[in-house]
Simulated scan of single mutants.
Amino acid sequence: MALSPRTEPDTVDELLVEVRLFSAEFPVLLANHLPMIIVALDRLGASSERLREYFETYRTTNGLVPTPPPVAPIQRDRWTDALGDRTREYDYRAFFEAEVRRIGIDSAIQTYLPTLIPGIGASATHGMMRTAYGLMRMDPTEVGTALGYWSTTYLSMPRATGATPTTDDPGQVLARACGLADLHQIEAETDLLWHNIRAAGEKPDFAPVVDWLEIGPDTGRRLAATSLALFAATMDFSALHALTGSHWIRLIGPHLDEADRPALQRYFWQIIASLVPKIGFPSLPSAEQLDEWRHLPAPGWPEIAAVATQSDDEHDISLVFSAREEEAVYGDRLYRVVAARRMGLIA
């Protein structure tokens, strides 16, 4: 199918209106990626026909369900009372859509997101994903919906205490987390990603992890580089969320007050550290190994994007889009290599 430079905006907007009729999760407690993937497909060059085809395939294959019915309005002065209550999805979405209309996108982000950041594992970080995609388009309804999604699926994890950090290297945080005895005894309720995150957060040994990373001006780049190395070494589903998540926090950060940006990085990396058991307690590759992979033959982004837009796997599309966007910022060719490998274009 031929690719167009961009889908006409009306198609994307039309489909986003329709997808907001559905819950942000589908049975059983799986993240509904459809609104974000519609945008990613558009940015990768998919035609309007392909977007509509993907919409129908995703909707029917995953059995998307309507947003739960309203329970009671969320009150502005007590808006945190129901955090993490999935029965309140309609109420939180309605509240935040109204707040974004009332005070604007950036003011809503600056007012409410600092409280939500410690629960960044919400729906396995997909509340963060939807927020990032809404901000990428500066779409007020999507931003409001995303904040509601983050709130209703808020995931409590150990809080930062202000203890002295132990390293400015995100890779060292992962390596040290791999050595925690408690993380070798994880018994998650199910194999859901957020259940694994929650199980790690409940282990006493894991509590200090959130304080380990020293945040500085270069932390965003180092998180992205470590996430890329982690995914290149493992090609693991959970590690994929480190790479894409680094993209999402990069999109969200500029909309926060400067003082609140370090928390976004800190709590995001706590979530990635919580996933080391699920990834298999990985070791990061050497600089020499990364450089060898970086120089592997790989097709260009147009070819990778063309293959990705024909995939029905939301994680293929998400990964390729984020990798392309991150390479454009950081200039690391390894993003193209891992995207090509994910799409089966190279071994």
Rank of each mutant, 00 (worst) to 15 (best):
Y330T: 10
N196E: 11
H126G: 07
E14P: 07
R93A: 04
G45V: 07
L41D: 02
P66S: 11
F55T: 09
L251W: 10
A175N: 10
E202H: 13
N62D: 12
Q270L: 14
A175Q: 10
L41F: 02
A242E: 00
R130I: 01
K203C: 08
R341V: 06
A242M: 04
T161R: 09
A305T: 06
N32A: 10
A259H: 13
E187C: 10
E14F: 10
M343W: 03
T7H: 07
I252D: 04
E326A: 15
E288A: 14
M36W: 12
D13S: 15
I249G: 09
H295G: 08
W212S: 00
I346W: 01
Y92N: 01
Q110F: 05
Q110E: 12
R336H: 07
E49R: 13
D42L: 08
A242N: 02
R59P: 04
T309V: 15
R261M: 11
A124Y: 03
A40S: 14
T61D: 15
L3Y: 02
W301L: 00
L16H: 11
H184F: 09
P27E: 13
Y267K: 13
P35W: 03
L264Q: 09
L213T: 05
P66E: 11
F26Y: 14
E258M: 11
P114H: 07
A122M: 04
G127L: 01
M129Y: 11
T80H: 11
D91E: 01
P217S: 15
L264G: 07
P282H: 08
H33N: 15
G344S: 03
S151G: 03
Q75S: 13
Q265S: 14
D77N: 13
A305M: 09
F95T: 02
D106E: 15
S23C: 05
L16F: 14
L44T: 06
T7G: 08
H33V: 11
R59C: 12
M235P: 04
P262K: 11
A163L: 09
T60V: 15
G104S: 11
L113Y: 02
T67S: 07
T152K: 08
I346C: 01
R130E: 00
P217C: 08
L113C: 06
F22L: 13
I279Y: 01
A242L: 03
V100C: 03
S274E: 04
R59S: 09
R222K: 13
A177Y: 04
R266N: 07
D81G: 09
F231H: 09
S107M: 12
W269N: 03
W150A: 09
T7F: 07
S156P: 06
E202S: 13
V338Y: 01
R324P: 00
G201E: 05
E314T: 14
R59I: 12
F96H: 01
E97T: 14
E214Q: 12
D218L: 09
G179Q: 08
D81P: 07
D316K: 03
Q265H: 15
A323D: 06
E89L: 05
S227D: 05
D168C: 11
D332W: 00
W248V: 12
L34P: 13
S47T: 14
M128Q: 07
Y133D: 08
A199V: 07
Y267A: 08
P70R: 06
D91Y: 03
A2I: 13
T164V: 14
L228D: 05
L275I: 06
M235R: 14
Y154M: 06
A273G: 06
L21G: 15
